[in-house]
Amino acid sequence: MDTVLRIENIHKSFKAGFIPKRKKILDGISLEVNGGEIFGYLGPNGAGKTTTLKCVLGLIFPDKGKIQIFGHSNLSLQAKEKIGFLPENPYFYDYLTATEFLSFYSDLTLVKKENKQAQIENLLQLVGLNQAADLQLRKFSRGMLQRIGLAQALINDPSLVFLDEPLGGLDPLGRKEIRDVIIRLKEEGKTVFLSSHILQDIEMICDRVAILVSGKIINQGALQDLISEKVKVTEITLSGVKTEDCKDLGDCYSAQEGRIFLKVFEEEKIATVIQLVQTKKGKIHSLIPRTETLEDLFVGAVKQR
């Protein structure tokens, strides 16, 4: 698959304080994003996710390194014509209505005049804001601003979309809707670069991820390669058995209504548990094998540093 974004060894530091002291934010970031995938860019707060995005978008200039979008320099207009960007906590000109705002941004791109109106209506429909088309942005809620932000990122029908914490500040329903939009973008053949610290969302929709800690990428690859499918622990809820009988089988906790919550770490012991329940004429309410999650990987990686 073609590489749509190539970041090669970028470094960035800022001077801060009264007596300027250099603070390193990015320390040799290199990554490649392939066409048509959803790429998750993960990291704790302050790791440098937004700084990387700003470098890619030409808002700040890296001290060292090279960034190419579709084979062009990231600062060239050819590159910018093919990208869309939704910043974290977006804020826009609050005196414009949703339609006026999108119309203004549309004038900054190559959208043809005759297609403009239809394009704006489609986008408002896509992000679920068609009811608010003539409402001033100052009256928008946080979730609505996020949606109009997504709409402006898509105004030029970009092939590569950068989303910085797109699901932040949204209610569960809003998150699902935006997630569906992101998946729809992938189905349309677009590439999505998603920066987030909400692991659940990334795990659900991303094809590949990179984990950034203190300005360095410490792990990257396809999600299934990073997370092993080996069962780490099996969680069993059962009743009709005494707690003492289960103690040797794993971690045992008392749950409500006489139930026992058992965490079994060795796979071969599961059969013993089932046998025990059968002999005691008890009942198994649930049996859930837990594999490694992105969260385990992430927490492990961050702790290592």
Partner: peptide
Amino acid sequence: DKRTLYTLLAKPIQ
């Protein structure tokens, strides 16, 4: 200050 510039400069303008 209001960060409206971020999305504006990400558009194909110099």
